[in-house]
């Protein structure tokens, strides 16, 4: 019963996330690149997406901190790493290059798969390959 509820809750959360992305304009890579285009025709719209998202996410986080455990699971899975290290900055930097080239970050790219558009499928397949490459190389990387 609880396992079914957890699956239903996760599905509903994903659905809300995807509807939010569609409503916000994040599924439009040209608009995302417009937000990053600070030396050209800068489009500030996406700052409003982040402001809205951090508002509700922040309220949820504040509430979660007062709970001993989540409603449907045994314990909160809070991130444990706090160090600001080279992999964090290098990884975020590489991600930013890919984001700027394409206008896609992982959430909108996965949501946009439902369009069936070939460019989205190519991007997501390459993203999976990039993740797999990291999995294979992580033991030999100078930074990890």
């Amino acid at each position: 019963m609880i396992r079914t509820l957890r699956l239903a809750a996760a599905l509903l959360c994903g659905l809300l996330f995807g509807i939010g992305l569609a409503l916000s304009g994040m599924l439009d890579p040209a608009r995302v690149r417009g937000f990053l285009d600070v030396t050209g025709a800068w489009d500030p719209t996406l700052a409003f997406v982040l402001a809205g998202a951090v508002t509700t996410s922040g309220l949820g986080t504040a509430l979660a901190r007062r709970l001993r455990r989540p409603v449907l699971a045994d314990a909160f899975d809070w991130p444990t790493r706090t160090r600001i290290d080279p992999p964090l900055i290098l990884g975020a930097g590489l991600f930013g290059i890919g984001w700027g080239l394409s206008g896609f970050c992982p959430g909108p790219a996965v949501a946009a798969l439902s369009s069936g558009a070939l460019p989205v499928v190519v991007f997501v397949a390459a993203m999976l390959a990039g993740m797999a490459a990291h999995g294979l190389l992580r033991r030999v990387l100078p930074v990890r």
Binding site: G14, L16, V54, P70
Partner: peptide, 25 residues
């Protein structure tokens, strides 16, 4: 954009409160 953002954050809040996890795609 703001309303869509509110929904995205609500999704992350519910995933944390119900399943205890970070909604990092």
């Amino acid at each position: 954009a703001f309303a869509g953002g509110l929904l995205i954050g609500l999704s992350a809040a519910l995933f944390l409160l119900l399943d205890g996890r970070i909604a990092g795609i």
